[in-house]
Design a protein around this nucleic acid. Structure first.
Lengths: 199, 199
DNA sequence: CCTACCGATCGGTAGG
DNA sequence: CCTACCGATCGGTAGG
């Protein structure tokens, strides 16, 4: 340890972030089962027992990665208005933002599919995530209806399920097609057809 | 070998089918990377080198599983009319049928997500599959427009992408929610809103 | 944070 | 179709 080198918590925290970033990338590329702690650790310039010093198990690492992405996105969603048609617009903006973050899209698409297995470590996480996503979206559609912005015959509960499913399905197509699908555009067209107001 | 035991090709063919069925189930449960030849072989009552006698590599087994499912579904789709609005109706029927075949839904949802990685053995397969699925669906929407059944402002190309994405996304939600999502119903509501005719 | 190791498991092959 | 084996790799632990 050379004199002047900063030691202690700050350095540990920075390494933690680096691990989470590299883990996100590899979990996205290879899935939870396909990713190995040794590869993640090597990409961070440490050994795999070194990684296990920061996160006790592989499972804990995955959950920390998912939690971190949620925190960042929740913070982003909380900026600005998030009710009714404005909330739906915000979801389209998120799709537009995601089109610049392949790693994050890969992470959620691949791990969500893996986690359909009841014994997957992230199964409960995604169960909750889908329930709250659909519920929040349904609330936005209900508010849009109260505002008179929703076309007659559009059921808020069904529309919410559709919108979440559409976002997920478009991400798969976007990844397979090597990012040539226009996720935000297709999404916007779908919502526009459900509203009486400009979108 | 007791006298009277049937030998030769018939028995080999039956074992091949059994392997494909068990492999489909495990690839769906655990993904391609998470599934092991030993487990598949054990479920078929043979050793894993015995399995490799029928399929030379794990990759060949996966592709054979996918090809077999396509053959079965193509045969089913070819029954009855498959143009315009009737074709769209046929896709909803397929979703209804899939709601009784969890194994098949798992296989395609999980492996498709895995296969977004360019080096996945099924990457090319899914690239082609999505292209043709979207193209066939676009053709159906174009025919619906020619028949005057399509609502003004609905773009066939966009609608095709939406419908395929919606089917995939609904399957993920259906799997995570332990089969409580009404895939066919949500799908039908989406298409109904795009048409001028009853659906 | 490291090296060194554990038992388990992987896909595939040798040889029969 | 089998047993027996290959080298590689896995998540996690011991001990420092």
């Amino acid at each position: 340890m050379t004199p002047g080198t900063r030691r202690g918590y700050a350095k540990g925290r920075a390494k933690r972030i680096e691990i989470l970033d590299q883990a996100m990338a590899l979990f996205g590329e290879a899935g939870y089962r396909g990713a190995s702690l040794r590869v993640i650790a090597t990409r961070c310039g440490i050994s795999h027992p070194g990684l296990l010093h920061h996160f006790p198990t592989k499972e804990a690492l995955l959950l920390a990665v998912l939690q971190r992405r949620d925190d960042v996105d929740d913070e982003w969603l909380a900026l600005g208005v998030t009710r009714g048609v404005d909330h739906l617009r915000r979801l389209v903006d998120l799709a537009e933002l995601n089109a610049k973050r392949r790693g994050i899209v890969e992470l959620f698409s691949v791990v969500a599919a893996e986690a359909t297995s009841p014994d997957h470590p992230a199964h409960a996480y995604f169960e909750t995530r889908y329930r709250t996503s659909v519920a929040n979206t349904e609330r936005a559609y209900l508010q849009a209806r109260d505002d008179g912005s929703l076309r007659t015959g559009t059921d808020p509960a069904t529309a919410a399920q559709q919108l979440i499913a559409l976002m997920d399905g478009l991400q798969i197509q976007w990844l397979i097609s090597d990012c040539t699908t226009d996720m935000a555009g297709v999404l916007r067209a779908h919502i526009r057809a459900q509203l009486t107001v400009e979108f």
